[in-house]
Design a protein around this nucleic acid. Structure first.
Lengths: 195, 195
DNA sequence: GTCTATAGTATGATAGAC
DNA sequence: GTCTATCATACTATAGAC
């Protein structure tokens, strides 16, 4: 009995989780507006009509996918926080960006491209959601610069995260992962150059 | 008779031109996928069904809008080319970006956000079109750095245009035009700092 | 050359069987 | 709790009247 309940729970959680994972990747690859519920259901191997048992609207799926990207970001910064030197944390962050260059060169930054699409809305309450996730990253980067004793930590955070969004956009627009490598190397040099 | 022909031509040209102008601004504000033919027709004050006399498909309208952004860019660089000093040309380019900060903070860079949307396609031949326009800007910027005798002119062009795309994305995601001002000032300082 | 009416299709969402 | 069948709607595109 316990087994069947756990199995049921696991299955439910499993399906919901599969849907969220599928939403995160399909929405990233195809974009919000081009992606249909059917696309996500297929990728998650869930019957189309059944999706609405877990998510009442398409926007709820978009929100869940965004939350998932936010969780990934939190996990990443938590891992970086274990490094003693804030400078090393920032350089590891850049290394992470460069490591994802193949995906970036094809589909851009998941959160950044989502922000571009959601920004074009002016209703639904989801129009600013991606911006909040980016803001979390900005704040974390700013803390690192502050801990390093750098001047204008917020301006430097803008420059670093902005460079990431810019190089992701350029590398996907030009379909060239090398842009991530080159720009990443430049960012590392700049971090190293800080007194 | 000449009058009526000219009037006819002017009216046709006028309508087509109105459609292109409307497409450029509406596609920028609402995005490609969320924009309907009816949206563009309404903005251009042209009857909905009549659009197809001028453009066979929606994608042709998107292409025309992109071409218009490219023309704007060409006109801008041609104007900047009249300045004697390549350093002044780059600083004027940045000033132009900052001058458009209100639009950028709401809808991002027209070409950049178009690139993000078109990148999510993998058919239709329009998926790389926005990238080509960005490439034109990159090449122009690279020429300026080369003329200044700077090392790695292509890397510097990537950094400058990337910074522009990044700050546009951040400023629209966070709905903060001041980001354009701050980052613009930083870019000008960097250009000035070049030996 | 201009515009209306409408066909054809795809999608988000729901009702209800199992 | 799961899934199928289907509705309602919105959109692209076309046929054809004027």
């Amino acid at each position: 009995m316990t087994d069947s309940i756990e199995k049921g729970a696991a299955k439910k959680g499993g399906k919901r989780q599969r849907l969220v994972a599928a939403a995160a990747s399909v929405l990233h690859e195809r974009g919000v507006e081009r992606t249909t519920i059917a696309d996500i259901a297929r990728a998650a191997d869930v019957p189309v009509g059944n999706v609405y048992y877990y998510f009442k609207t398409k926007d709820e799926l978009v929100e869940a996918a965004l939350d998932r990207h936010a969780e990934y970001l939190d996990a990443l910064t938590a891992r970086l926080d274990e490094l003693a030197d804030p400078r090393e944390r920032l350089k590891s962050l850049v290394a992470d960006w460069v490591g994802a260059r193949q995906v970036a060169a094809r589909y851009g930054c998941p959160t950044g491209t989502l922000a571009v699409e959601l920004d074009k809305r002016d209703e639904g309450g989801l129009d600013l959601a991606a911006g909040l996730v980016i803001r979390r990253l900005l704040d974390w980067v700013e803390r690192q610069y502050r801990e390093m004793g750098a001047d204008e930590p917020d301006g430097r955070a803008l420059a670093l995260v902005g460079a990431y969004q810019g190089m992701s956009l350029l590398s996907s627009a030009l379909r060239d992962p090398e842009i991530m490598t080159r720009e990443g190397a430049r960012l590392v040099r700049e971090i190293d150059a800080l007194a």
